[in-house]
């Protein structure tokens, strides 16, 4: 054991969030798809994977299914909101996450509502069950590396350049014969897929999920990280995830009661978000502005 149990826990969260944040950056930063509903994909992935695994599906299959199911919602979201612009689009995507939240809360026969889903099994891969957090750390590191590598290849490929062109000037791109709607939904589907994967990793790590894990405070965390890291920069997203997940840990030295620790962490995220918007909206490594 190299790290303390607590550090291992933080590292696992960081790798899970790196996937989530980079996937949001792919849609928001690279493609310019304003999406305030990204945590909904995270939640859909977590629930899909947890429920399927509880039904006896092998972990890898459940994880892939989580990604695919989330990307179906990504497709629907783009098709439905294509006519909207600016803050109406922002509100519609935010509204989408509220709809998903209330479905998780109310489809009790499937999701058990507010009671949440306990006892989510730890992943088993080829007869090897991941039991300790150290093993889980290696596993998420691996999945995170593969996911980020794929997304890195995507944004640096000719296809990725089309995504950036969509963000910069969609009209000009259509005049060049490219179907920007199809580019948009493909980007959103990829983004949702990896958000779903990270949701699955989250669910099987914590082993308990309920709808409140996928609501507006979670959204603030993810948005803060993406904006601090910078839109259109994978490197920025990775650095910012590590930073932002780590910063509030200094609070633990103050020996605050846990009822204060949680809200204080949230408040710090909010302050970081507002500060970065006021001082340096392009973030650490960003190159583009929010439209």
């Amino acid at each position: 054991m190299i790290f303390s149990a607590y550090q291992t826990h933080i590292f696992i969260l960081i790798f899970i969030y790196i996937i989530l944040v980079v996937s949001l950056n792919l849609a928001l930063g690279y493609t310019g798809l304003l999406n305030l509903g990204h945590v909904a994909f995270f939640g859909i992935g977590a629930y899909t994977s947890a429920l399927l695994a509880l039904e006896g599906l092998t972990y890898i299959a459940a994880m892939i299914a989580a990604g695919l199911f989330a990307s179906v919602f990504g497709y629907l979201l783009v098709i439905a909101t294509d006519r909207l612009r600016g803050d109406y689009l922002a509100m519609a995507t935010l509204g989408f996450s509220f709809v998903v939240y209330s479905l998780l809360l109310n489809l009790r026969d499937v999701t058990r509502g507010a009671m949440g889903i306990p006892g989510i099994p730890k992943p088993t891969i080829l007869d090897f069950t991941i039991r300790t957090n150290d093993q889980y750390l290696i596993f998420v590191l691996l999945v995170c590396a593969i996911s980020v590598f794929i997304m890195y290849r995507i944004v640096n490929s000719p296809f990725g350049k089309l995504l950036e062109a969509t963000r910069d000037n969609a009209v000009c791109l259509r005049v060049l014969g490219k179907n920007t709607l199809s580019l948009k939904y493909k980007a959103m589907m990829i983004s949702a897929f990896f958000a779903g994967i990270s949701g699955s990793l989250y669910a099987h790590y914590i082993t308990f999920i309920d709808p409140t894990s996928f609501y507006i405070s979670e959204l603030i965390l993810v948005l803060t990280i993406v904006i601090v890291g910078g839109l259109g920069s994978i490197k920025g997203s990775i650095v910012a995830t590590a930073l932002i997940i780590y910063i509030p840990e200094v609070l633990r030295m103050l020996d605050l009661p846990s009822s204060v620790l949680g809200p204080a962490r949230q408040a710090i995220y909010a302050v970081i978000l507002i500060t970065i918007l006021m001082i340096r909206p392009k973030g650490l490594f960003g190159k583009v502005d929010l439209e």
Binding site: I154, S157, K161
Partner: peptide, 16 residues
């Protein structure tokens, strides 16, 4: 210019 010269949407998989 590469975007202009490619005549349709890039195929995602081969592109990656």
């Amino acid at each position: 210019l590469q975007i202009a010269m490619s005549d349709s949407n890039e195929k995602l998989l081969s592109s990656i």
